[in-house]
Amino acid sequence: MADENKSYFGLLNGIARCDYYGDKEMTDDFLKGELYGDMSPDDFQKLTTRCRGLIKSMAMTNMDMNQSEVFVTSQAKKKDASITETQVKVLLKFWKNHRSKIHEALLEKCSWNNQLKNTSWRIDVKSQTKTKEQVMEPTAIVELVFENRLSMGKEVDVIQFEMNSESLRKLLKSVHEIEEQIEKNSK
């Protein structure tokens, strides 16, 4: 890959890391220093704005490789194009590598509810007094660990509860209902 293409590819990767993967070290200043030291600041800003616009457009509709090829080549043919013919191939290669990851990042960005980070469990045997007899009843102790996606420090919250056979049966009923619905809606 020619030097110019290498820099362009590096820039696209840097922008992806900064804008979508949360890598705050990939600032424009850093990228310019590493990849486009000789370019004027104005020209560099124009370049990054154009790159960001192209990535944003492709991410907005989660373009597949065919759609992105049509889109990018048409952008290159425009008057005052935001991309050169040689950069087209580089951008498409970048998109092929990052498309899924960027889509995941966008989904993550609009997930604002608590996330279940971990589930652990153990069995206890409790002694219960039922009708004048001592009955040994196995009980499941479950621990759920949640992460609050909204808090800056990614706050963690833990919930513990016990279930006997009866309450576990009810929970499993819900689980089965959900699985049925997933199955039904997958067709």
């Binding site: 989660n62 609009c110 102790i141 513990q160 016990e162």
Partner: peptide, 23 residues
């Protein structure tokens, strides 16, 4: 330890957001 007294659920689809029209 506490007892689990209720479980509610919803199956949904995140259709779109301000950054992606087809999530």
């Amino acid at each position: 330890i506490g007892r689990l007294i209720d479980v509610q659920w919803t199956l949904g689809v995140a259709v779109s957001s301000n950054t992606c029209k087809n999530i």
